[in-house]
């Protein structure tokens, strides 16, 4: 494991650029460290792109951005076979998905077929074009954004597809001091220092997998899953895969906290973000996110 300072350096470096969003930064880093995909839900102009770019830069990752629109076709993402007149053969022309961090802006604006192409890539780390599979090289993470307010002409992601994202986080408005600092900035954005490398990230992802999980913590994970399945809370409870993702996220958080084991507080911190987008409230009066926050708070931290 790199020195404990490594984690602190990365975090402070990102926070130097992305102001007043330390919690969101932490969660984005957790996603990255556990090779998960992130869904940011917020109105435009909240710094989604900045966050994604900074993350990519810090680790020296190849970054691509795709603005999803109504007429975006699957091939626009995956790439296509182009007839090369010089060789008299089809040549695969890779799309923006062949990157290491892909920012999929306003993902709900693209038609479902295009969405599915991206989701397949996220799930299986490969794209299929004309019956031919092309592997994506890890690390590969998608940061997708979605505008929750503007519903006209959008195709909301089906619930089953939401499962592909590890977390969903809102960005929210910055705190007043952070906003002031933002306004006072002379240049557009300060330059980010590259502290890691893609290889480093792969190493981190491996390390987070090996973080120790005690039986007590596993019990707590099961308890959370069970609670979501109780009647009257949500339409469907969390799936076993969601449970795995919850645990992975908790491991990654432990890594960022320079610990080599998971504690209940890790679960407490990541649970609402991991579970929120996978659940539908059972009745109109209930708010999913609030319900999840309550469940997380009720988790015994010293069990």
């Amino acid at each position: 494991m790199p020195g404990e300072n490594f984690q602190r350096h990365i975090i402070s470096e990102i926070n130097r650029v992305v102001l007043g969003k330390s919690q969101q930064v932490e969660q984005a880093l957790i996603c990255l460290a556990s090779a998960g995909h992130l869904l940011i839900e917020d109105i435009p102009g909240m710094g989604k792109t900045t966050l994604a770019k900074t993350l990519a830069k810090v680790f020296g990752l190849a970054f691509k951005r795709v603005q999803f629109t109504n007429d975006l076709l699957p091939a626009d993402i995956t790439g296509m076979n182009v007839f090369d007149t010089t060789t008299q053969a089809f040549r695969f022309h890779p799309g923006p998905v062949f990157s290491q961090i892909l920012l999929a802006d306003e993902i709900n604006r693209a038609p479902p077929k295009t969405q599915s192409a991206l989701l397949e890539a996220m799930e299986e780390l490969q794209v299929t074009v004309d019956g031919q599979s092309h592997r994506l090289e890890p690390p590969f993470s998608v940061i997708a954004t979605q505008n929750p307010l503007e519903m006209a002409g959008t195709y909301p992601l089906p619930e089953s597809q939401m499962d592909r994202f590890m977390m969903r986080i809102p960005l929210g408005y910055p705190a007043p001091e952070a906003e002031r600092a933002l306004l006072e900035r002379k240049h557009r954005d300060p330059e980010v220092q590259t502290l890691g490398s893609p290889e480093k990230l792969l190493e981190i992802q491996q390390q987070t997998r090996e973080i120790h999980v005690s039986d007590t913590v596993l019990d707590l994970v099961q308890q959370l899953l069970r609670q979501t399945r109780e009647p009257g809370r949500f339409v469907h409870g969390l799936s076993p895969r969601a449970g795995q993702q919850l645990l992975r996220a908790a491991q990654a958080r432990a890594w960022w906290q320079t610990r080599d084991f998971v504690i209940p507080e890790d679960l407490q911190q990541v649970f609402p973000a991991v579970a929120g987008h996978r659940l539908i409230a059972a009745s109109m009066e209930q708010d999913v996110q609030q319900n999840l926050e309550e469940m997380a708070l009720a988790l015994p931290t010293t069990a």
């Binding site: 120790h212 005690s214 080599d260 084991f261 504690i263 209940p264 010293t302």
Partner: peptide, 8 residues
């Protein structure tokens, strides 16, 4: 304490 409780 945490190490003892949740660690290896």
């Amino acid at each position: 304490w945490l190490q003892l409780r949740y660690g290896p």
